[in-house]
Design a protein around this nucleic acid. Sequence first.
DNA 1: CGGCCCCTTCAGGGATTCCCCGATGCGGGC
DNA 2: GCCCGCATCGGGGAATCCCTGAAGGGGCCG
Lengths: 231, 231
Amino acid sequence: MSRPTMPDTRVLIVDDHPFMRRGLAQTIKDQPGLSVCGEAGSVTEALQIIESSRPQLAVVDISLGEESGLELIKAIRQKWPDVKVLVSSMHDEMLFAERALRAGALGYVNKGEPPNVFIAALQRVNSGQIYLSDRMTNRMLDHVLTDKGEQIRSPIETLSNRELEVFEMIGKGLATKQIAAKLGLSPKTIETYREHIKQKLNLANSTELTRSAVQWVLEQGRNTSPADGET
Amino acid sequence: MSRPTMPDTRVLIVDDHPFMRRGLAQTIKDQPGLSVCGEAGSVTEALQIIESSRPQLAVVDISLGEESGLELIKAIRQKWPDVKVLVSSMHDEMLFAERALRAGALGYVNKGEPPNVFIAALQRVNSGQIYLSDRMTNRMLDHVLTDKGEQIRSPIETLSNRELEVFEMIGKGLATKQIAAKLGLSPKTIETYREHIKQKLNLANSTELTRSAVQWVLEQGRNTSPADGET
DNA sequence: CGGCCCCTTCAGGGATTCCCCGATGCGGGC
DNA sequence: GCCCGCATCGGGGAATCCCTGAAGGGGCCG
């Protein structure tokens, strides 16, 4: 074919970590046929760039600081259904992969994966197919087939998006009022979420809720080895 | 001026995320006077590279998948005390900055910071000074007043026996009333202890108190199970 | 398409806790 | 003797916790 310029597939990168953006961008640029048309560190920034530069692909981090990548994905799905979204997160895929797909993403890849895996995921999503890790794919199929594979789930997985969001903030030491302010909701609503979380996780009181949340947050960033005590 | 070749300061990057490594490396390379002498994704890999290429600086992520960056820092401190370590983590500095310095790092910078902040931190550490964010510096100075140069003493040691007892029970998930019952005291007394503990540990509210207590109990080593049979 | 269930959001109201204040007694230093 | 820290309680208003209810919306299922 005599096209002088076969246009690259244009990719938007959404991540709140500048270094991660840069690393992703570099890897994408190295790939023939792909180019980076923009970088965003927040939801509003991302929406603006999509508006102006209309990428075919978007690589979206789940946790955008205060904001949630899931919300961004839903917004994209609604306004620009043709923009294909690949979620790249460093969080547990068991918890977020399904939520990501439900929100409208086409794929979920862990940031710990080597670049070739990431690129493969990106190209698969670009072709309109769903990408998940083998383990996650099997797990999802199990859910469908066994109809109630819910029992083997961690109780934390039964939390809704909002509930999980609140749970994480509790674990980071935020009080009810602070969470309400940060999410722009009534403290009463946060109280309700706390109740729901306690029910789902079978926690007796507020102290246990906080304890559980703190523990979970610490495990998310697995680092504290107990070999700390000298003397 | 007169020196024909001013050799670059050589930096090792230790991070389990390939894209983050790449982003960090690129930013460092852009900086005149700095060069990247190696990248590692695990503790053993990092130690090997240090052995072979002897960097002056090491940028270390706290959470290296299963491993702990803190262990790596301790090992570096022991074998190559002249290698200066800057910790770069995406987790809450309130939780990990102090531990990082105790382990032997010279600085802690959040990955969410823009590149210029990161570079400033790196150069400050390179000059042998400690780098922390302003907020964290104030926080540390607030409750740490010891002879400089030696290890920092945990403010938890300033708790009285009763206070420590209560602190531990809080960390195990007990509510105020439960603690009062267990110790045969008035709930009002427990409230007072909670107040005292918050003052001594410089904690703002009840949530932070619980968070701090839970963290401490987890670090103490998990022999005394909190008696929550979650089946 | 009419239920049905879950999610999200909020309110009411009593019980409880939080948080700042003060108070008592008791021991130890100086 | 005096001061200071520790252990122990109380008052009281503000905040929360905890339980209950409820309204709107979306998805699923027969």
